[in-house]
Design a protein around this nucleic acid. Sequence first.
DNA 1: GTCTTCGGTGAACGCTTGTACTCCAGGGTG
DNA 2: CACCCTGGAGTACAAGCGTTCACCGAAGAC
Lengths: 212, 212
Amino acid sequence: MVAAPGEGTLSRVERKERTRRAILDTALDLSADTSLVAVSLRQVAKDVGIVPTAFYRHFASIEALGLELVDESFASLRAVLRDVRRPDPSLKELIDGSVDVLAEHVDARRAHFGFIARERVAGPPAVREAVRHQIELVERELATDIARIPGTENWSADDLRVLSKLMVTSMVATAEMLIVAPRPEAETEIKDSARTQLRMVLVGAVNWRSET
Amino acid sequence: MVAAPGEGTLSRVERKERTRRAILDTALDLSADTSLVAVSLRQVAKDVGIVPTAFYRHFASIEALGLELVDESFASLRAVLRDVRRPDPSLKELIDGSVDVLAEHVDARRAHFGFIARERVAGPPAVREAVRHQIELVERELATDIARIPGTENWSADDLRVLSKLMVTSMVATAEMLIVAPRPEAETEIKDSARTQLRMVLVGAVNWRSET
DNA sequence: GTCTTCGGTGAACGCTTGTACTCCAGGGTG
DNA sequence: CACCCTGGAGTACAAGCGTTCACCGAAGAC
């Protein structure tokens, strides 16, 4: 990494961390217009401003880099869950807020949500695997969140799993749409649709429970 | 294409069509373990058994090939809709059958459904665009199908769109899971889950309509 | 002040990639 | 019959790829 003018005093670990971050960000950026499998080590190095071989000082391969990005991206996804469960968890008026929270996070961490959506189905095998595993964990986490909501005490574990799966699926799908959206005007439409969707799902879950 | 022994008599157009098919199938196959963007013209040619330059006699580029595969794959998806709407469309007992129909089609056209799932988010730009467009068409098609079912006459157009969007999304998600599934034993579990999911959604739609 | 550690360099390797050319053989057509 | 059309072969090239190796200079440890 070439020394930036005006800030010559950086410790060695600071410099290393800075380059490492640059590599991660650049790779995330390059993968955005297809997939990580189409990203070359040399292109990353070139964009970062280091020589190709210097890449190896930080990661063993693009795939290893990808696993790191998986962790980062899922930190962003978990943050959504955390923010959603923070207010008073009443099953009904939770909905409107949830969608807004999701939209906020997607907007702030656009690259991460896109990364998850892409690499889940089209990443390097190890990365794909890691994403699937993380999604399963998030589904479980959401299931226990739902179980804590008053009125869901007598639900079976299976029902909880199915519902949280459904919610995570449409959460990811909504995130995808928000990312692809031609910026601001279509966004409210997508959010409205997501809210309706979420209502349908929840009303369905409640009524279906009491029916069976 | 090297002449296959024992069937030397093929017209020129037949031979061309045969090579063309081989190219399409090979590309579909190679894209299966990541994405079309990771498939090289040379690799396809090699696997087909022709010299790289001969590829151009059939397609201008891998991307053009991809657009062709999009059409084929969506023929497979539309076939699901066609088979689902064939029996008597009563909203309730339709569900169990639908999931089986989907599973059948996914099993028969595994490669096509995987292709859609992957290239939708991670294909070459033009391919991605084409997939999104086709999905929108399928959503519309499903919406008019639903509108024909007795009991949905007074639904708003927006509600129809939202519901069909939700159904297509979970249809694609289910197909994905079936494809990834460690063959036969997990399949019934996925199908059960999908049925429950579908019931939740439909019950939700019905009840939510009558509530508002 | 000396020695060590280590992020970054630069040249070199063998291989794959897309694409441009010319050429050929054999079926289709007059 | 002779002629053309065309799918495929063969050769060639410049560019990009991942990876190896020896080397350097400055920050950090002592």
